[in-house]
Design a protein around this nucleic acid. Structure first.
Ligand code: MN
Ligand code: MN
Ligand code: ZN
Ligand code: ZN
Lengths: 139, 139
DNA sequence: GTCATAATGGGAACGATTCCGAATAAGACG
DNA sequence: CGTCTTATTCGGAATCGTTCCCATTATGAC
């Protein structure tokens, strides 16, 4: 999704709110909503505002540290991706618990570009998400 | 996206509002938002309410007549798909004008199912959308 | 320490979508 | 045609996620 990581590092101040949001995300391998992260942090006694949570999540996305998936119901969910976050990849997501597995599909990438080119489309990107029930949630 | 068309035809009354919404969608090969369709109809002198537009768009989706794409900004867009709407397919969409081309990718389908199975996921489905600038909008 | 200013946060504002409920009209029946 | 049942309509209120505003706070450079 992110065509390139941060185009140009912007100087940013280190705040504990920012760290808290990152920790909350890092704690689980699931896509979580801003509201969810906010609730968790507050429940944990963290002093942080909802606006701040949204702000940091967006920063992570801009910096290529996190991926975002827009659920059908309109809610956006975020996930801190692996160290190799610079590598283009997609996700296999559990509809029930949100657990996500990073996946790659070289064939899909080339197919997408080819189809777009054949139809005269330029400046192309794509979204590919696979949803299902993880083994754990199947019970 | 639609696992199956209407599971069971529900008797529905024929209203001119419903016909108007369908015509509005059929008039263009682009994904359009409910608000957009509503504005167009009103501008055309049609007597119809926003709620009604939403209702019919959802009915089309339920009946498998239309596909829906949830834009990143949270807006849902609808498009009346070809007669062969029963056939599973995806779209190549212009980010600028919304024009959409129906595309198929058998290889992607099998790949998606395989990846899901390998990771123990069941009850799988997926979203694949390619975005770009159509030739016309490239100018 | 001081200072400039990036970051914060809570409440208002927003925009898309859904809900509600009284008014309207499709269509079955006679 | 009339009548009757009830699906449908529609506009305004209500939701809900997200963004905006801006006075207050705190980071980090000097
Ligand atoms: Mn890809
Ligand atoms: Mn597919
Ligand atoms: Zn799960
Ligand atoms: Zn275009």
């Amino acid at each position: 999704m992110s065509l390139m990581a941060a185009t140009q590092q912007v100087k940013r101040r280190a705040t504990n709110q920012g760290a808290a949001v990152k920790e909350a995300l890092a704690a689980e391998d699931t896509f979580r909503s801003a509201q969810d992260v906010y609730a968790t942090l507050r429940a944990n006694g963290e002093k942080i505002g909802l606006s701040t949570v949204y702000r940091h999540l967006q920063i992570f996305v801009d910096d290529g540290l996190a991926d975002v998936i827009h659920k059908p119901d309109g809610e956006s969910t975020y996930r801190l991706c692996g160290d190799a976050s610079t590598t283009h990849h997609h996700h296999l997501v559990c509809r029930s618990c949100g657990k996500a597995v990073e996946i790659e599909g070289p064939a899909v990438e080339t197919w997408a570009d080819k189809v777009a080119a054949q139809n005269g489309f330029t400046d192309v990107n794509h979204t590919v998400e696979i949803f299902g029930l993880c083994a754990a949630c199947a019970a």
